[in-house]
Design a protein around this nucleic acid. Structure first.
Lengths: 197, 197
DNA sequence: ACCTGAACACCGTTCAAGT
DNA sequence: ACCTGAACACCGTTCAAGT
């Protein structure tokens, strides 16, 4: 066998990632495995390890793409009023999580990667999301020192994330999306009101 | 073989749970498996299935005990001032999560249980935590209707949870505990200030 | 009735061997 | 050089068979 350069390594790399993503989207994280990916792209399991060091590495790249899409989604929020913008950012985040639930969940699933710490390039993608919040928050209270703004954006956005996690995981009972949205908005509005007062 | 009633079924049930818990505590969720549990209690894997329907069932009971301990911890917060009490509840939650990190993480790991929905008795344990927050929040703003209080406690507490998750998972970079605590407190204080104003 | 232990159907990962 | 496929060391779960 050993079909020769039918696809470049780079192509295989993308095929593996795309196949893995579609499995996650359609069947969820727990359904993802190497044999299913290999079957889907018409190669054998071994070939996955030519282009990714292991499963954890592949999953990290799935996560990275999800984070990129989240950033992209949030960047489309263009509102002059910062308080309004923060609300819309939160709603956009919730909507992404809800519409892309399986992929979003993978972000918080950890299969321990090779290195114990988080890779810098991955951390940057996380930070990029928080920076958007910082931008609005600093417009909202221009007088505050930068480190306070940074802290506040972490607290606020982690809070928004928390509402999304527990609501969508149904830890709060079975809520419809509009209920979750009003929970998110309550948190954002109350926080902002309290923070600037 | 087949040693007869050396331990009662109920004793084995407890032994399995305790062994599983200690594995989670010492080695983390990913190190938990049936063969390790069996080895630890001096039985074979098959016997685990006499007392728990499957691994998901056992994990659910680990989670239940963790939730009980959290409730117990939070109930020890006895402060007259409700705003102060909410702050201390949040700090107590963070401290539990930090000191019992491996066990706390299991709460948000899902291995799909037999039934798709959350069992009622388990949901009750989750609710019990939120009820504590509701109690303080209703003292804080006695004029508000009950459903608003309930919504607010969900938003606030989910938010607190979110800060704990992202901070302890180091998604926000490597923060020491005191930094995390000030993030939590900022969220609680800002929310409360905004909510009652 | 209680418990074993061996089997089954899965996993992720590796690597000698083919082209 | 690229890729296979078979092996290895694991999983959770089941169940006929022993006492």
């Amino acid at each position: 066998m050993a079909r020769r350069s039918e696809h470049s390594q780079d192509e295989i790399r993308k095929m593996v990632l795309q196949a893995a993503e579609s499995i996650v989207i359609n069947e969820g994280y727990s359904a993802l495995n190497t044999r299913k990916i290999a079957m889907k792209i018409g190669y054998t399991v071994g070939s996955i390890y030519m282009v990714y060091t292991n499963m954890a590495d592949l999953i990290l790249h799935i996560k990275a793409r999800t984070l990129d899409e989240i950033s992209q989604n949030l960047q489309q929020v263009q509102v002059a009023d910062p308080a309004q913008a923060l609300e819309e950012l939160a709603v956009a985040y919730l909507n992404f999580a809800n519409l892309n639930y399986n992929r979003w969940c993978v972000l918080f699933e950890y299969r321990k990667s090779s290195g114990s710490a988080i890779d810098d390039w991955y951390q940057d993608k996380i930070d990029k999301v928080f920076v958007l919040v910082e931008g609005q928050l600093s417009k909202l209270s221009a007088d505050r020192p930068k480190n306070e703004i940074k802290q506040a954006s972490r607290s606020l956005w982690s809070g928004v994330h928390g509402v999304c996690v527990l609501s969508l995981a149904k830890a709060l009972g079975d809520l419809d999306v509009s209920k979750v949205q009003s929970n998110v908005l309550l948190l954002v509005r109350s926080f902002i009101k309290g923070f600037i007062s």
